[in-house]
Design a protein around this nucleic acid. Sequence first.
DNA 1: TGAAATGTTGGGGCG
DNA 2: ACGCCCCAACATTTC
Length: 481
Amino acid sequence: MTTAIVWFRRDFRLSDNPALTEALLTCERVVPLYVHAPEEDGRWALGSASRWWLHHSLTALDDSLRKLGSCLIIRRGPSLETLRAIVAQTGAERIYWNRLYEPELIARDTEINRALQSDGLIIETCNSALLHEPWTIKPYKVFTPYWKAVQRLDLQQTPLPAPKALPPLPARFETLPLEALRLLPTIPWDSGLKENWQAGENAAQRRLQNFIASALAGYAEKRDRPDYAGTSRLSPHLHFGEIGPRQIVHAIRIHTGAHESPTGILKNAESYLRELVWRDFAHHLLYHFPQTTEHPLDERFARFPWATDCTEALTAWRKGMTGFPIVDAGMRELWHTGWMHNRVRMMVASFLTKNLRISWLEGARWFWDTLVDADLANNTLGWQWTAGCGADAAPYFRIFNPVLQGERFDPNGDYVRRWIPELARLPASHIHRPWQAPSALLQDSGMHLGETYPRPIVDLRISREQALAAFQVIKRIPGAI
DNA sequence: TGAAATGTTGGGGCG
DNA sequence: ACGCCCCAACATTTC
């Protein structure tokens, strides 16, 4: 009997899981293992919302494994010691895992790989998470040439099927109860997460099918509208590997192939594929520029005069109490559901980094703790992009006006009304600028500015000018990208 | 995957 | 009828 360990890390699915498939091809016995070692994540240890998701994702994976006659073995780290212990207990000869791309995890995995090989084990690592791994494409700093480069490549990879059955584990194999990892919050702030999300591979597949059936047809047009359910909402499932990008591309290709009028669908399919490739691009950047999790890619920004003494403004931003409805709606959606519409992410990020002139890293840390889809590659790219200091960055002077953005992308104010009930009775004409509403209108709407809803904490025109002036300070420093 | 400032054009009101 | 001005609408430039 040959035995393999499949080390699950962030690939919590049975279908299109190359590590699992390879293990089953080569060995009679397979030990599905999760090792909890948060200290190995370094400076970006799991945030609260991610811990919540992880708990439910591990539950779902264990359920799926049990249906096939196996189960998930859960242990606490350190990873290398734990793997060695399992090897000793099972006599495993091979270990399989799917690769991760965060700098500190690459370093850890490389070291573990080397150590286990010197123990005499056979190690095989696979790609489950990306369409194209970072080192297969030369370094790019701009998305468009990257996009053109990958379009020339073959994206026709067919996803692997899930196994039909799994070999049983040795009897009474020691495993920790999931609760021992203490991933769930001790105070119950997670009701909004429960209402909005279901973790796990099956839920991910349902969401994909639902997206393809309902929202894909209008994706290119509606993806920027937070008042519509026009996006896939697959991001947390993708982050935890409950679904893989190959599976998504494949499912969309089947759908577009079956559609009667392919041109309309193709535009939407390509628009969505582009977003998936942005996700690959974020991993590409993190791999080639690993310092960017903490440091701006554009080195001029190391000397950017960020606002000091900004605790109050930062708190208002976090709580959704800035007085700008679209910003506050986004921040409250984030707090309640662990997710925010992408267009609104750009608006709140622009507001933080430009109107409040608070460092993008503060925003990145808050998102890291509150997002169920918190992903180091995507988070780093997104924040540096908006702040103007990253790859393919919006020029610093591209400053969003939250009133105009609100009126353009939430024209009826439905998104604002949903997340800010105290503004719900304001008409569309003033819902994005309540401080400009006539007092009679405010009274009719039951509004008391400064009491039921804050007045704006900054002046848009002045803060914009101050941000532009701050940029002048670093503009001409050499070493720019 | 901006917004504001500035420039240009052309229709219509009016003396 | 004609020139002049106003200003919306659109285009271009600048930050």
